[in-house]
Simulated scan of single mutants.
Amino acid sequence: MAGAVLDLILTHKRGAHEKATRQWAAKRLAEILGRGFGGEYFAGSEGDEPIYDEPIYFVPDRTLLAVEAERVGIHGPADLFGGVVPYPFVATKSITHAAPQGARDLPEGWSHALGDALAPFVLPGLTVFNLDDARRAGRLLLADGMPIRSKPGHGIGGSGQTVIANPQELDAAIDRLDAAAIGEAGLVLERNLASATTYSVGTLTVGTIVLSYSGTQRTTRNHAGHEVYGGSTLRCLRGNLDDLLRATVDERQRRAVAASIGYDREVGRAYPRFHASRRNYDIVHGEDGAGAVRCGVLEQSWRFGGASPAEVLALQAFNDDPGLQGICVSTCEVYDLIDVPPDAEISFRGEDPVVGAITKYGIVEADDAPACTGAMGNAVKDRERHGHPA
């Protein structure tokens, strides 16, 4: 279908609920852009791509490499909901920190200057790509006398993370790691915070609409009893991240937005081929073991993510009302088949073959609605716990 919005499939291991949610969003993005929804686009080998009479808008299931994007006709942020990076590691947590002096096995395209440039906007930490460097870097960080957190570069949310308090725990944690996976995506070692709040800050450009937001995440329990992502509450405004900073009153949120702006700027300087229409950053704010207040970006997301249904609902609201300046949106994920509030939009409700029964829905409210204020407060409380899982 010429000029359509297509769901771009590259990662075939995504769950049924993730695929359905992304297609729910793609259909609404098509309405916002004044296009039709063209269904799925399975990326094949070079030369197999279909030819379209008009540019296609893609909703990829992961961050794209520049060579992949160019092959399907994605040339800039106006062509996709997501982002494009020049090297695989740029889309992982590993980009957030510098490598230790003398580090080996650094990937092609690694920028030594970026780690120094990002230092004011992240927690103290290091990135490594082999287990020997991990032991050395971990000991360097532990010398400050405070716990650190080990985070695989390819991990989503808090998966695979370990809090480490001493060299013995460091060795035990490293012995459990997959050396090949660390060589591919890297390992982040950074200072662990206690009693921290994690904020979400993001910005979107879709068609003529530019919006930015700050908010928080919630967690829930899946059918295995594990703590997992449970939804987001976002305060959105029309404008970019600088506009968001000017409009933010709460000091902790201001620090989170400012860290996102600095992080985003330095990545763009280091990698000019990077571009994204969807930029989302998880930022932690709390105290370290010495009582010092710390605020830093934990990771970036330049792909369709957990907060994207809420983002799309906000985009719809701004598109329907050109005079609208602010909106509050919430999205919820519940591992059960439940009845949702009457004003909610369901993006998925059913039995997923992998995760089991799950219901995912979103709600739009006025920016000054009491329910929105309450939801934001509850979301902050839900995230105020030891550690920072992003």
Rank of each mutant, 00 (worst) to 15 (best):
A2R: 14
G3V: 10
G15F: 06
A20N: 14
F37H: 15
E40A: 01
G47F: 15
F58V: 09
P60D: 11
L65Q: 07
V72W: 03
F89Q: 01
F89S: 06
V90E: 06
I95E: 00
H97S: 08
R104M: 08
W110Q: 03
H112M: 11
F121M: 05
F121R: 00
G125I: 15
D133S: 07
R135A: 13
G138P: 05
G153T: 08
G155W: 06
G155P: 03
D175P: 05
D175W: 03
A181C: 04
V188W: 01
R191N: 05
N192I: 06
N192W: 15
A196T: 07
A196E: 13
T198P: 15
Y199K: 05
G202N: 03
G202A: 03
S214C: 06
H223M: 12
H226W: 06
E227H: 06
V228L: 02
G230T: 06
R238A: 09
L241N: 07
D242C: 11
R246Q: 10
D250G: 05
Q253N: 12
E266M: 08
G268E: 09
A276F: 07
S277V: 15
R278L: 04
Q300V: 10
A310F: 01
D320L: 15
G323Q: 13
I327M: 14
I327K: 02
F348D: 00
E351K: 00
V355R: 00
A357T: 01
D367N: 10
D368L: 09
A369R: 06
D382G: 11
R383K: 13
H386E: 15
H386C: 11
